Amino acid sequence: MASAKKITINDVAQAAGVSVSTVSLVLSGKGRISSATGERVNQAIEHLGFVRNRQAASLRGGHSGVIGLIVSDICAPFYAELTAGITARLESQGRMVFLTQSGNDGEWMLQRLEMLISQGVDGIIIAGPLARGTDLRQAADEAGIPLVFASRASYLDEVDLIRPDNMQAAQIITGQLIQRGHQRIAWLGGQSASLTRAERVGGYCATLLKFGLPFHSEWVVECEASQKQAAEAVGVLLRQNPTISAILCDNSVVAMGAWFGLLRAGKHSDESGIERYFEQQVALAAFADVPEHALDDIPISWVITPAREMGESLADRILQRITQGTTTLRNQIMSPRLAGKNLSGLKG
């Protein structure tokens, strides 16, 4: 005989017509829940035969030692580095991390948040698209759970947030290229819908204007994070604009593809006699999320977005919220830095 289906907190929430976080509050006796809502939840519990887990109830009291972490894509270098920083710092403080993914568009973010709340975590860190940031914060507030956000861009207000300074990073690396004598600088990579890219392109354009250099919209080329597409895009870009002397790449994958594209262009012109795509040295620069020691040893200038350090700051912030009951919202910005091994470029 098949065993009966185990009744979960999600089943109770659905039957009572409330959120998972509301059921969690009723079970733990925390938060502000109306008597009518509490009665409806308890009736659903009794009707379904939900078994209250005493261990889970104690966890919901804030003594689990577990921190929930929601990331959009653990395979992306930024989120991998961020997660490494968070887990290392929390584990050094005797805490554990409950990790889950929400998807690149954040479509499962609220569901993942409610799941973590139902598991009785002490606090939650969210790293990814924050289009529903207000709903997420409200759900966490209702459950009495501290919540800290990590964002790659700066479009969310009224939350506890740590983010990189994308515009400053672009200004720094563009300025370095200009100081090295480059006056015709192109941009490669990213999609126009990306706010992170928009902030970086804004810094790039502002720096060109600051130094009185030309900006050409056709020199700003979209490209997915694909080495193959980046290599092909570089060839097209330089055939159409042979006087470009430097290319700023949106991420490390695009930068590697651009490097291969330059090698291919030079190789083809040498061996097949095809007209050269460019007659001068072309420098590459790019944004990186990994520490300097992990950068590829190729002739690219890097500006580093300190994702791992952001993770450590996020861990410190959530622990402060938990242990001290801090509720003040802060928008902390992590400054970028140039890698020490910036090189001069690659000849075509």
Results as ranks from 00 to 15, higher is better:
T83Q: 01
E114G: 06
L156Q: 13
K267F: 06
D316T: 09
I274C: 07
S313E: 13
V236D: 12
V12S: 07
L110C: 09
F260I: 11
G31H: 03
V253T: 15
W187G: 05
T323M: 09
S335N: 03
I333K: 08
V290C: 05
Q229T: 02
R330Y: 07
G17E: 04
E199R: 04
G266W: 02
S64D: 01
P77K: 11
T207W: 03
K347D: 03
H216S: 13
R276I: 10
L263C: 08
F211N: 14
E232Y: 03
D141Q: 11
A246E: 10
S301N: 10
S58N: 09
G17A: 07
A225T: 10
A15I: 00
I173C: 05
R330C: 12
R337C: 08
V282H: 00
A153I: 01
S194Y: 02
K210D: 09
G49W: 12
N42H: 13
G38T: 03
G85H: 02
E222H: 11
I173G: 03
V290G: 00
S245P: 03
P299M: 06
M96E: 04
A225P: 08
A225Q: 10
E232N: 06
C75S: 14
K210R: 10
S35C: 03
Q14A: 11
D297A: 13
G202H: 10
S335P: 11
L156C: 05
R32M: 12
R337F: 14
Q280F: 08
G68R: 01
G38H: 06
G257F: 10
A2M: 09
R132F: 01
Q43S: 13
V201Q: 12
E39F: 04
Q14G: 02
V236W: 10
R40V: 00
R40M: 06
S118C: 04
F149N: 06
S19V: 01
V20S: 12
H63N: 11
A36Y: 00
S154P: 05
S21C: 10
Q119C: 13
R95E: 05
A15G: 04
D316V: 01
G340Y: 01
I185R: 01
F98V: 02
M167R: 15
V201T: 09
I117W: 00
D122K: 01
S269L: 06
T174N: 08
R95P: 02
E199S: 15
R317A: 09
Q229K: 09
G68D: 07
I7S: 01
G103D: 04
G261M: 10
R264L: 06
F215L: 13
I333S: 04
R54G: 00
L59F: 14
E39H: 06
D165F: 02
M1E: 10
R317F: 05
F278I: 12
V97P: 04
G61A: 15
Q176V: 02
M167H: 09
L27T: 05
E158N: 15
L110T: 13
Q119H: 15
Q183Y: 10
Q43V: 06
D289K: 01
L116A: 07
E199D: 15
H182G: 12
P291G: 08
M109L: 15
Q93F: 02
R308W: 01
A44R: 05
H216N: 14
D296N: 13
V221N: 12
D250T: 06
I86W: 00
I9S: 12
S154R: 15
L136K: 01
L209V: 14
I124T: 04
G94L: 01
L59Q: 14
V303N: 00
W108H: 14
E292M: 08
Y277G: 04
S154L: 10
E114W: 00
A2R: 08
Q332E: 15
